[in-house]
Every structure is written in C-alpha cells, then in structure tokens.
C-alpha cells in the first residue's frame, strides 16, 4: 500500500477542511461519504473494520462497543467488525443503534439477524474480503456516518482532513 502524504491530493479528489466549510454542507457530505486514507498497519495489508474505526472516530475499545451498533460494508451488514478486513474503495457505514424492527435487524450481530440474512456480511466469501497488498495506488475507504455517530464524531472524522470525490463535490 502506498503511503499517503498529507497535502498530496490524489487526482480526482478534493481535500476538505472543516474550517472553510459550512456545517450543513459538512453534515451532508459525511452522509454522502468522505474518503479517508487507510493507515499503515502492523500486519501489512490487513485493516479490520474495528481498528479503522477506533482510529478515525478517536475511540477506545469499550466506547466503540457501546456506541457503534450498526456497521455496513458495501451494502452488507457487518456482524463481526474485528474479523472483517477492509479493501481499497470499500464503502463503510457507521452508525449508532437504529430504531424500528428493521433498525434492530440491521444492528451488528442482532439476535434477529436471521430476518435479514440476505444482506448479512458474514455470507461474503473470504476471497471477496481480500487484502490491500499488491496495489501501489493510494488506498481509500469511503466512510459514511449517520445518526449519533455523525453528531458525536464529526470533528473526529474531520480532524486530519478528509477527501471528497470531484463528482461528489459537484452534487453538493
């Protein structure tokens, strides 16, 4: 994985800094998804959902388990974030607990997860959840934050700056 140098904006992206952007616009962008470079890890090429979110949301493990109740990766529910690895260009959704019967189904490892088994991430094959090794282009995750995570962690997500795609910027 190529190391991403701060300030070096890859082609097709814009660096977004919170100081210069209206709060309403920021809220909208964070729901649409912002791009965050994947960090270097002790095990090259393996970044779990948990380790990524602990860093980006500035959380310790206990608060993470308390606050983060709903995660989706590429439209599939993440039931085991410790054992789900990220790959480049993944779309990761992070949220607090959601209301409603379907909100309860979508919770990670929900006791009623059988009711949404069609979209459970644990049904993904290992190979679909591959590593980050072997590609020299910058690796980004598109992160979307909803619900209480958006309210409580907007500044955490933005603190090192995030990127948005040029196309996304045009739609805002």
């Amino acid at each position: 994985m190529q190391k991403h140098e701060p300030g070096a904006v890859p082609p097709g992206f814009i660096l977004l800094e919170s100081k210069s952007t209206d709060r309403t616009e920021l809220l909208f962008m964070l729901q649409q998804g912002v791009y965050i470079p994947l960090p270097e890890t002790p095990v090259p090429g393996r970044v779990s959902v948990t380790s990524f979110l602990l860093r980006v949301l500035n959380l310790d493990d206990e608060t993470f388990r308390d606050e983060i109740k709903t995660m989706m990766l590429n439209n599939m529910v993440v039931d085991n974030p410790d054992r789900t690895d990220l790959k480049r260009n993944d779309v990761l959704i992070v949220s607090g607990a959601m209301p409603g019967l379907v909100g309860a189904m979508l919770r990670s490892d929900s006791p009623i997860k059988v009711l949404r088994s069609t979209i459970s991430g644990e049904n993904l094959k290992e190979s679909e959840n591959s590593s980050l090794v072997g590609d020299e282009s910058p690796a980004f995750i598109r992160l979307k934050a909803f619900n209480t995570v958006l309210r409580n962690h907007m500044d955490d997500i933005l603190r090192y700056g995030v990127y948005i795609g040029i196309d996304d910027e045009q739609t805002t």
Binding site: N75, A97, P99, G103, L106, T148, R151
Partner: peptide
C-alpha cells in the same frame, strides 16, 4: 439511558432510518 430512545429518536426522529435502510438496499 438507551441509545435509541435516549439519543437517536429524540435527536432525529424516526427518519434517522432513511440513510441506513437506503444503504441496506431496502
């Protein structure tokens, strides 16, 4: 004390579901 009834629902109402149901493709 509960995160749904004490935080999500008071802050955003039931429409907080829109984004996540959309992400679920439902």
């Amino acid at each position: 004390n509960h995160s749904v009834t004490g935080q999500a629902l008071p802050a955003y109402g039931t429409n907080v579901l829109a984004n996540i149901i959309n992400e679920a493709g439902g």
